[in-house]
Design a binder for these strands. Structure first.
Length: 447
RNA sequence: AGAGAGGUGGCAGAGUGGUCGAAUGCGACGGUUUCGAAAACCGUUAUACCGGCAACGGUAUCGGGGGUUCGAAUCCCCCCCUCUCUACCA
């Protein structure tokens, strides 16, 4: 059965009502590793885990029993239809009519079984949708960002000169980002970059893409509008509908991250073993409605509706995914080191981790003038959680298809990097950019 | 946006009510042959679910959903998508 339509647009309710089997966690995992699942969900403070898992397993048993019955009845009906065909060919009309009696009964049975089966599957699916991914064993328990674990820090926090300013003052001083203009033509959260500001954006994008390419990632350029199936594939739908800009006329969504189009490239694919691991990178603008966010934390470039980001994505065999994950974190760390930004690496606790992730490291840079850490990257391993929906598989031992692991990370998101670069490197003579950017920018100092 | 054509296995492409999960070709894989390779020949080559330790058996799937029928790739209805021409346009 197909989780997603092989082609085409679908009505908004397609996935919820027509179910099929869009499981997120695999039933087999729930069944065989119940204790691990429950312990993991506890780290996420997921209160109803035990009852939900129980209910899913009971429904699963029921579902399978129903399918066995359904299949048996259907098999009998198929056999009778064959016989009727033979009889009619032989001219035995009476014999055919006699068999049709039984066939009529079976038809009713099959219909009843099919309805029950669909209902059981629907219920099961709805419960499965509620369950977040099971955290990796290294994930600490916790309720909020305060419980995240600082894994390590790098770089040195700068001593700022007297009269140092936050980036929202600096961008005015050097006239490189204009929020007022953005408000005029679009709205709040859509800045206009000007002059050296615009060139810095372009430089960072190129720098990040080149670094990713050097690290073995293949650059792709993807659409920034995606269809509904893609939203479901990576898990933005049905949950985070309100976070995405939506074009109702064509039922397309503006991507919140290029994770969505890049990962969906591999939707419904069985990837040949010699093509693994998949390593892709892309630059795209990203769009987030960020409904309901407000306050001092969102000043300046800290939080925007549109921002630029270079993303790295890997798709690996299960046994390799955590090594890949570590390599991705190291890649991002290296970027921050090259940029000379003080940073720290956090292992997110169960309560702060995204719904679909099994393990997430956040990388934060020190924003000297604001005196706070800013998240600039989030590197996650989704294990099979996304792949299960995407039907992204490879052929493993004995030719059996197996789900792959999907991973992604920001490498990097620009606005907060820009904020930190501006604040940390401010001098009376201007903003001294790190060496690696000079050739990309065509200048070394913003003034 | 207007008009038309079409959606079948990895690809191409037959198939208009019955043993069709689907001819044929290409590709891929295995074998024969060869010192080796090519060619030729032989064979294999979809996915998901259910049952089974397994061998294997069953069910479903010919864009999606519904209907007619004992039986649907094939007939009917609705929807989606793609292509071509026109219009528009970087």
């Amino acid at each position: 059965m197909s989780i997603l339509p092989s082609s085409g647009q679908t009505s908004p309710s397609f996935f919820l009502e027509n179910y099929l089997c869009p499981t997120m966690l695999q039933i087999s995992v729930l069944k065989e590793q119940t204790a691990r699942v429950l312990a993991g969900l506890a780290k996420r403070n997921f209160k109803t885990a035990e009852a939900d898992v129980q209910a899913i397993l009971v429904l699963d048993q029921r579902r399978r029993a129903l399918q066995t019955q359904h299949d048996a009845a259907q098999a009998e009906a198929n056999e009778l239809a064959r016989q009727i065909g033979g009889l009619l060919k032989a001219g035995d009309k009476a014999g055919a009519e006699a068999l049709k009696v039984r066939t009529g009964e079976l038809k009713i049975q099959v219909k009843a079984h099919a309805d029950e089966l669909a209902e059981a599957e629907k219920q099961q699916t709805q419960l499965l949708y509620k369950l977040p991914n099971v955290p990796h064993e290294s994930v600490p328990a916790g309720h909020s960002a305060d419980d995240n674990e600082v894994v390590r820090e790098g770089g040195t926090k700068p001593e700022l000169p007297a009269g140092a300013q936050p980036h929202w003052e600096l961008i005015k001083k050097y006239d490189i980002v204009d929020f007022e203009l953005g408000i005029k033509i679009t709205g709040a959260g859509f800045p206009v970059y000007k002059g050296q500001g615009a060139r810095l954006q372009r430089a960072l994008i190129n720098f990040f893409l080149d670094q990713a390419r050097d690290a073995g990632y293949t650059e792709v350029q993807v659409p920034i509008l995606v269809n509904e199936a893609s939203g479901y594939g990576t898990g933005q739908l049905p949950d985070k509908e309100g976070q995405m800009y939506h074009d109702a006329q064509d039922n397309l969504y503006l991507i919140p991250t290029s994770e969505v189009p890049i990962t969906n490239l591999y939707r419904d694919e069985i990837i040949a073993a010699d093509k693994l691991p998949v390593r892709n990178t892309a630059y795209t603008p990203c769009f987030r409605r960020e409904a309901g966010s407000w306050g001092a934390d969102v000043r300046g470039l800290n939080r925007l509706h549109q921002f630029d980001k270079v993303e790295i994505v890997q798709i690996t065999q299960p046994e390799n995914s955590y090594a890949a994950h570590a390599a991705m974190v190291a890649h991002v760390e290296n970027l921050l080191q090259l940029l000379g930004l003080p940073y720290r690496v956090l292992r997110l606790c169960g309560g702060d981790m995204g719904f679909t992730s099994a393990l997430t490291y956040d990388l934060e840079v020190w924003s000297a003038a604001q005196g706070r850490w800013l998240e600039v990257s989030s590197v996650s391993n989704f294990e099979t959680f996304q792949a299960n929906r995407l039907k992204c598989r490879y052929r493993g031992e004995g030719g059996k298809t197996q789900l792959l692991h999907t991973l992604n990370g920001s490498a990097l998101a620009l606005p907060r990097i820009v904020a930190a670069l501006l604040e940390n490197n401010q001098t009376p003579e201007g903003i001294r950019l790190p060496e690696v950017l000079h050739s990309y920018c065509g200048f070394g100092v913003i003034k």
